[in-house]
Amino acid sequence: MKIVFDQVDKKFGIVYALKDISFEIDQGEFVFLIGNSGAGKSTLLKLILNQLKPTSGKILLGDIDLSNGNKDDVNNTRRKIGVVFQDYQLISDKTIEENIALILDIVNYPKEKIQSRIDKVIKEVNLGTRRFLFPSQLAGGELQRASLARALAIEPEVILADEPTGNLDPENSWNLVKLLKDINKENNTTIIMTTHNNEIVESMGKRVIKINDGEIVKDYNISKKS
């Protein structure tokens, strides 16, 4: 699913959160969104998820114009996107397994395959012993992996990761990024990840979009560190 932003503005009152944003992201790309806090990275992800509507401009996800899309289009598009939120957004009174089952139910995943799919993603993120625990019983790194497991479960075309390493220690941060990299490579899943961690960005050798005060100031590829 190709993602296209065409001269997108997003204003909150009279303040521009994003201004004249234009870019294209092809299926299978791994893109880092970097910039200071309040630069507009999360707003951009929210626009992709249609959590916010653009003030002007056009946002295309595949064939669907989200700026004019109806509710069904929005829901269908969201079902193709896995989201890893910085604050996890796991449902507190459901176990990790139930949280994953919920999204599979939302996307109408075949009932008979739900359990095997849960087993697979739980294994992928190495949460086997934690699957029947509630979010409040998990540590930060585990919660982030649980959030990723939920995003992976639906076999998404795109994964949006909003500062997924923000609350993690260096080891867990690297493990998570490595996992995203593998998913990107093996499944050709588009990954859009916001981060403040320059070390990770520079070592990965991927495309980087730098945002400052709501405007794209740089869109470049960096060569991978050896």
Binding site: L49, Q51, K71, D72, N75, N76, T77, R78, R79, I81, V83, Q89, L90, I91, S92, D93, L102, I103, I106, V107, R150
Partner: peptide, 16 residues
């Protein structure tokens, strides 16, 4: 409310 918001973000329809 939070559960509903999360479900909607994950693609759940209003009826769901």
């Amino acid at each position: 409310k939070d559960e509903i918001k999360i479900s909607r973000l994950l693609g759940a329809s209003s009826f769901y």
